[in-house]
């Protein structure tokens, strides 16, 4: 007999595997985008303006962050608000298992999918375009885990402030585009003008981009970048806990 929490996690994993849309956008899309960027010949040319790097090098952290954003902001909020709206959480509250087990399982699954997506993007960059693997793997992993936490906390906050699934999807999309911009999807953060870059690095994904870039180059992520991401994670988690309603 599996423990209740394990049974919930197993069931939610099966359900997660039945969402081809979420799986595509989280796991496949970021790496496919990286592959397409790398197909442009000029993006594979070393540029002095980018500090001796290629555009495709800069798009590896972008693809990594994109997977986290897809998981935390696009995929997770509709699931959680749907569970609340349709009484799935209430139904579970009448059993010996608390509905928090369901939320935890969803956070774990979306976090895990985001990390797999990140590994995939790093591997695709390495295999297809010879992008160097992170030279400081521990620092890279630290930045990655912290940013995953930030993305999930942001998604949870969207759930907390949205009364319905429709509102959650709308707010999620509204936050989604700024998040993609600050992660450098249109212009990589490292290629942004100095003034813009300073502002973007105060956002969770902008700071994460900086942290990942530093770790990829062989250093430990800077205190400023780690601190900004950690602060956002703490604030968003507090907001989600404060405002989340079970029904």
């Amino acid at each position: 007999m599996p423990s209740p929490a394990a049974a919930v996690l197993r069931t939610e994993s099966r359900l997660f595997a039945r969402e081809p849309g979420s799986l595509f956008w989280i796991l496949v899309f970021p790496s496919v985008l990286l592959l397409i960027i790398g197909l442009v010949p000029s993006f594979r040319v070393v540029s002095d303006e980018l500090g001796g790097r290629r555009v495709v090098d800069l798009y590896v952290p972008v693809a990594v962050l994109l997977g986290l954003i897809m998981a935390g902001l696009q995929a997770m909020p509709p699931v959680l608000t749907g569970y609340r709206e349709r009484g799935v959480l209430r139904r579970m509250a009448t059993t010996p298992v608390r509905p928090a087990a369901l939320l935890t399982a969803q956070l774990v699954l979306h976090g895990a999918a985001a990390l797999v997506s990140a590994l995939l993007a790093v591997a695709v960059g390495r295999i297809a375009y010879g992008v160097e693997l992170p030279e400081q793997p521990a620092g890279y992993l630290l930045a990655l885990l912290l940013t995953t936490a930030a993305a999930l906390a942001l998604g949870a906050t969207v759930c907390a402030v949205s009364r319905t699934q429709k509102i959650a999807t709308a707010i999620g999309s509204a936050v989604f585009f700024p998040a993609m911009f600050t992660a450098g999807v249109w212009v990589p953060v490292q290629a942004m003008p100095e003034a813009l870059r300073r502002i973007v690095e105060l956002t969770p994904f902008g700071a994460a981009s900086e942290a990942l870039d530093r770790a990829a180059a062989g250093g430990w992520p800077g205190w400023a970048a780690v601190g900004v991401t950690a602060l956002w994670t703490a604030l968003l988690t507090a907001a989600a806990v404060r405002w989340f309603r079970w029904e």
Binding site: T11, G87, V88, R90, R91, T95
Partner: peptide, 29 residues
């Protein structure tokens, strides 16, 4: 909750959960 079973008004399950999975899941609780 261990000795009381409930059927709620206007409550649903996860849309893609099968009947067998629902029964197994709730039995594990």
């Amino acid at each position: 909750t261990r000795i009381l079973g409930a059927q709620l008004q206007e409550s649903e399950l996860q849309a893609k959960l099968t009947v067998r999975e629902a029964l197994e899941l709730y039995a594990a609780f």
